[in-house]
Nucleic acid binder design. Structure first.
Lengths: 136, 136
DNA sequence: TACTATTCCTACCAAATTAATATGATATAA
DNA sequence: TTATATCATATTAATTTGGTAGGAATAGTA
């Protein structure tokens, strides 16, 4: 299952997209509209900024806007930043690969084969962008 | 990500399938062959028995064999028994549905739509049986 | 009968993760 | 100078995960 962080992150990005980004939108506004605990949201926003998804404007009238083009921000990318791997087992992950301790032959592993297939089916769906989401 | 429990459970079922089921196979044998901590495996085996996947034979020479036909045991089913929902968010789960607390309109929710699609892509893969796995 | 190999059951425990909160420093528009 | 923000680090509480402990019950075999 996805963490609440990821869900909050996606909701935040959709909110920013829907509410234009001429002027930055503050964490307070996002928190109130999307019912995300304020301080928790701050952490998520920081993570998104550090990963160059958003940029921030400090001080009064400050807030957040897109740094990266929302057409280019995919759900998969957000999940990877906030939660980690998309794949259901580490030995089939591209970005977070880990060998199974007990595994003797990765190539012949039946379980692995299944989860490679699964990941390959999942990725095209999750590679949709924030703007694609809006059109669903 | 999947828990170790699920991975152990699938490995256990594959092991039982590969090693015939004329005579029951003990937890000890499975534990040693598949490198699963013995006591932890006992818990998993109990869960599989209680869910009518396996049956057990008590006493000396006892062990476990299939109750359900391995052709009919799907990976999805095992995940549901051991870990819970397949879907990545509860509001799109068939077997473990939960409403999002904050959600005002489930039908129009963009995030939900994406994860419905995702679940629909995942299910056919995970509905493969233990015997299908063997053929991969 | 006694012995041994096994399942079965309840409870417990430790580490990790998740979801959040607390506190306060820093920046900036008005 | 004040109000409104972000920024940063640390702390906490709840839940989940992965595993262990101890022993009761069952059944085959000598």
């Amino acid at each position: 299952m996805l963490s609440k962080r990821v869900k909050y992150a996606i909701k935040t990005l959709l909110f920013l997209y829907e509410n234009g980004d001429e002027k930055p939108i503050s964490a307070k506004i996002i928190s109130e509209n999307e019912k995300i605990p304020y301080k928790f949201l701050e952490n998520i926003l920081r993570e998104l900024r550090q990963n160059k998804i958003l940029k921030s404007v400090r001080g009064a009238e400050g807030g957040y806007k897109f740094l990266k083009d929302p057409n280019e921000i995919t759900v998969a990318e957000i999940i990877r930043i906030v939660d980690g791997p998309i794949a259901l087992i580490p030995c089939v992950s591209f970005y977070f690969y880990e060998k199974c301790e007990d595994c003797t032959d990765e190539v012949s592993c039946k379980i692995r084969k299944l989860f490679v297939q699964l990941r390959n089916e999942m990725l095209p769906i999750l590679n949709k962008s924030i703007t694609d989401l809006e059109k669903l």
